[in-house]
């Protein structure tokens, strides 16, 4: 096995799923919340009942699903 292959393997191991990066999730949450808040004030409260921010919501939801899985692991008692 060459040094290059070793390096590639190492890189793959170190590369996390982008949604597991808490700073990225924070950005996605802020992006969604900003869009949601704007929609709530300028559209929803004025009688427009059409959901917006679909793209932001879908990106942010990936983070939420991961967060919930982590919390479930943390709070589920282990069977010894």
């Amino acid at each position: 096995m060459s040094n290059k292959d070793n390096k590639d393997n190492k890189d793959n191991k170190e590369k996390k799923h982008p949604m597991l990066d808490p700073t990225l999730c924070k950005e996605l949450k802020e992006r969604h919340d900003a869009c949601f808040n704007k929609w709530y004030t300028t559209a929803f409260l004025k009688g427009n009942a059409t959901m917006e921010c679909v793209e932001e919501w879908e990106e942010y939801q990936v983070c939420i699903k991961i967060k919930i899985v982590q919390k479930k692991k943390k709070f589920t008692p282990h069977n010894y």
Binding site: K29, F36, T41, A49, M51, I64, K67
Partner: peptide
């Protein structure tokens, strides 16, 4: 009602670590 959605995070309540929306829908 707008403020209710936006009040956290706040330095007044550092104990609230995060608030995440899990689902949202409008009854047609």
């Amino acid at each position: 009602s707008t403020a209710s959605f936006r009040k956290y995070p706040s330095p007044e309540r550092p104990d609230i670590l995060s608030i995440d929306i899990l689902s949202k829908e409008i009854d047609p």
